[in-house]
Amino acid sequence: MNAISLKINNEGYDVPVKPHWSLAYVIREKIGLTGTKAGCEMGTCGSCTLLLDGKPIFSCLRMAIDAQGSDIRTIEGLEEENDGELHPLQEAFIQDHGMQCGFCTPGMILAAKHLLDHNPDPTEQQVREAIGGHLCRCGTYVRIVKAIMNAAETMRNAQATQ
Protein backbone atom coordinates (compact mmCIF):
# COMPACT_ATOMS: atom_id res chain seq x y z
CA MET A 1 0.00 0.00 0.00
CA ASN A 2 1.11 3.56 -0.72
CA ALA A 3 -0.04 6.42 1.48
CA ILE A 4 -1.27 9.27 -0.68
CA SER A 5 -3.20 12.48 -0.17
CA LEU A 6 -5.85 13.71 -2.53
CA LYS A 7 -7.38 17.16 -2.67
CA ILE A 8 -11.05 16.81 -3.45
CA ASN A 9 -13.44 19.77 -3.39
CA ASN A 10 -10.85 21.75 -1.39
CA GLU A 11 -10.69 19.09 1.28
CA GLY A 12 -7.60 16.93 1.96
CA TYR A 13 -7.95 13.14 2.19
CA ASP A 14 -5.14 10.80 3.30
CA VAL A 15 -5.72 7.32 2.04
CA PRO A 16 -3.63 4.18 1.48
CA VAL A 17 -3.92 2.87 -2.08
CA LYS A 18 -2.52 0.22 -4.35
CA PRO A 19 -0.94 1.71 -7.48
CA HIS A 20 -3.48 0.22 -9.85
CA TRP A 21 -6.57 1.40 -8.01
CA SER A 22 -8.50 3.82 -10.14
CA LEU A 23 -9.37 7.28 -8.93
CA ALA A 24 -13.05 6.41 -9.36
CA TYR A 25 -12.72 3.39 -7.09
CA VAL A 26 -10.79 5.26 -4.38
CA ILE A 27 -13.14 8.23 -4.37
CA ARG A 28 -16.20 6.00 -4.07
CA GLU A 29 -15.11 3.03 -2.01
CA LYS A 30 -12.31 4.42 0.16
CA ILE A 31 -13.31 8.05 0.58
CA GLY A 32 -17.06 7.54 0.34
CA LEU A 33 -17.92 10.28 -2.12
CA THR A 34 -20.39 8.20 -4.08
CA GLY A 35 -21.66 11.00 -6.33
CA THR A 36 -19.03 9.92 -8.84
CA LYS A 37 -20.46 6.81 -10.51
CA ALA A 38 -18.55 3.80 -11.75
CA GLY A 39 -20.20 2.39 -14.88
CA CYS A 40 -18.24 0.63 -17.60
CA GLU A 41 -14.82 1.21 -15.99
CA MET A 42 -13.21 1.28 -19.41
CA GLY A 43 -13.72 4.82 -20.55
CA THR A 44 -16.80 4.42 -22.65
CA CYS A 45 -19.76 5.56 -20.52
CA GLY A 46 -18.70 8.86 -18.92
CA SER A 47 -20.42 8.32 -15.58
CA CYS A 48 -17.16 8.63 -13.58
CA THR A 49 -16.30 12.05 -15.02
CA LEU A 50 -14.81 14.58 -12.64
CA LEU A 51 -12.75 17.73 -13.04
CA LEU A 52 -9.02 17.28 -12.59
CA ASP A 53 -7.20 20.61 -12.51
CA GLY A 54 -10.27 22.12 -14.13
CA LYS A 55 -10.56 19.64 -16.99
CA PRO A 56 -13.08 16.83 -17.31
CA ILE A 57 -11.51 13.37 -17.30
CA PHE A 58 -12.72 9.81 -16.82
CA SER A 59 -11.65 8.88 -13.29
CA CYS A 60 -11.84 5.14 -14.09
CA LEU A 61 -8.89 5.62 -16.45
CA ARG A 62 -6.73 7.48 -13.96
CA MET A 63 -4.77 5.82 -11.19
CA ALA A 64 -5.59 7.43 -7.85
CA ILE A 65 -1.89 7.52 -7.02
CA ASP A 66 -1.39 9.51 -10.20
CA ALA A 67 -3.83 12.23 -9.07
CA GLN A 68 -1.80 13.46 -6.12
CA GLY A 69 -1.18 17.18 -6.18
CA SER A 70 -4.13 17.79 -8.48
CA ASP A 71 -7.23 19.81 -7.76
CA ILE A 72 -10.12 17.35 -7.98
CA ARG A 73 -13.76 18.46 -8.19
CA THR A 74 -16.64 16.04 -7.95
CA ILE A 75 -20.39 16.59 -8.13
CA GLU A 76 -20.41 17.00 -4.33
CA GLY A 77 -18.28 20.14 -4.70
CA LEU A 78 -20.69 22.01 -6.94
CA GLU A 79 -22.91 23.40 -4.21
CA GLU A 80 -19.97 24.65 -2.23
CA GLU A 81 -18.75 26.47 -5.31
CA ASN A 82 -22.20 28.00 -5.64
CA ASP A 83 -22.45 29.37 -2.06
CA GLY A 84 -24.31 26.36 -0.75
CA GLU A 85 -27.07 26.54 -3.36
CA LEU A 86 -27.65 24.01 -6.10
CA HIS A 87 -25.73 24.97 -9.22
CA PRO A 88 -27.88 26.35 -12.07
CA LEU A 89 -27.07 23.18 -14.00
CA GLN A 90 -28.43 21.04 -11.18
CA GLU A 91 -31.53 23.23 -11.01
CA ALA A 92 -32.01 22.96 -14.75
CA PHE A 93 -31.66 19.17 -14.73
CA ILE A 94 -34.43 19.06 -12.11
CA GLN A 95 -36.65 21.58 -13.95
CA ASP A 96 -36.27 19.96 -17.35
CA HIS A 97 -36.21 16.37 -16.11
CA GLY A 98 -32.76 15.88 -17.57
CA MET A 99 -32.57 12.40 -16.11
CA GLN A 100 -34.52 9.28 -15.45
CA CYS A 101 -32.46 6.92 -13.28
CA GLY A 102 -29.85 9.60 -12.60
CA PHE A 103 -26.79 7.41 -12.96
CA CYS A 104 -25.22 9.45 -15.77
CA THR A 105 -26.23 12.80 -14.27
CA PRO A 106 -23.12 13.68 -12.20
CA GLY A 107 -20.87 13.06 -15.19
CA MET A 108 -23.17 14.93 -17.57
CA ILE A 109 -23.33 17.92 -15.22
CA LEU A 110 -19.57 18.13 -14.73
CA ALA A 111 -18.90 17.87 -18.47
CA ALA A 112 -21.51 20.58 -19.02
CA LYS A 113 -20.03 22.74 -16.26
CA HIS A 114 -16.66 22.69 -17.97
CA LEU A 115 -18.30 23.67 -21.24
CA LEU A 116 -20.27 26.57 -19.73
CA ASP A 117 -17.29 27.82 -17.73
CA HIS A 118 -15.41 28.21 -21.01
CA ASN A 119 -18.24 28.94 -23.38
CA PRO A 120 -21.23 30.62 -21.71
CA ASP A 121 -23.25 30.73 -24.93
CA PRO A 122 -22.81 27.35 -26.63
CA THR A 123 -24.70 26.13 -29.65
CA GLU A 124 -26.71 22.95 -29.31
CA GLN A 125 -24.06 21.21 -31.40
CA GLN A 126 -21.35 22.28 -28.94
CA VAL A 127 -23.43 20.96 -26.06
CA ARG A 128 -23.82 17.64 -27.84
CA GLU A 129 -20.09 17.48 -28.47
CA ALA A 130 -19.28 18.25 -24.83
CA ILE A 131 -21.38 15.31 -23.64
CA GLY A 132 -20.38 13.11 -26.58
CA GLY A 133 -18.50 10.70 -24.32
CA HIS A 134 -21.47 10.18 -21.98
CA LEU A 135 -24.06 7.46 -22.29
CA CYS A 136 -27.56 7.75 -20.86
CA ARG A 137 -29.17 4.32 -20.77
CA CYS A 138 -32.58 5.90 -20.17
CA GLY A 139 -32.23 7.87 -23.37
CA THR A 140 -32.96 11.30 -21.94
CA TYR A 141 -30.46 13.04 -24.21
CA VAL A 142 -32.98 15.49 -25.63
CA ARG A 143 -33.90 16.71 -22.17
CA ILE A 144 -30.28 16.75 -21.02
CA VAL A 145 -29.35 19.01 -23.91
CA LYS A 146 -32.35 21.22 -23.14
CA ALA A 147 -31.36 21.43 -19.47
CA ILE A 148 -27.82 22.47 -20.35
CA MET A 149 -29.03 25.09 -22.83
CA ASN A 150 -31.45 26.47 -20.22
CA ALA A 151 -28.78 26.48 -17.50
CA ALA A 152 -26.50 28.40 -19.84
CA GLU A 153 -29.20 31.00 -20.34
CA THR A 154 -29.86 31.28 -16.60
CA MET A 155 -26.16 31.73 -15.95
CA ARG A 156 -25.84 34.37 -18.67
CA ASN A 157 -28.80 36.27 -17.26
CA ALA A 158 -27.37 36.11 -13.74
CA GLN A 159 -24.08 37.40 -15.08
CA ALA A 160 -25.84 40.26 -16.89
CA THR A 161 -27.71 41.43 -13.80
CA GLN A 162 -24.62 41.40 -11.61
Binding site: G43, P56, I57, F58, L61, A111, H114, E129, G132, G133
Partner: peptide
Protein backbone atom coordinates in the same frame (compact mmCIF):
# COMPACT_ATOMS: atom_id res chain seq x y z
CA UNK B 1 -11.19 11.07 -30.91
CA UNK B 2 -14.60 12.47 -30.14
CA UNK B 3 -14.59 12.23 -26.36
CA UNK B 4 -13.39 15.40 -24.66
CA UNK B 5 -12.51 13.58 -21.43
CA UNK B 6 -10.24 11.11 -23.23
CA UNK B 7 -8.66 13.90 -25.28
CA UNK B 8 -7.74 15.58 -21.99
CA UNK B 9 -5.84 12.46 -20.92
Amino acid sequence: LNTNEVRNM
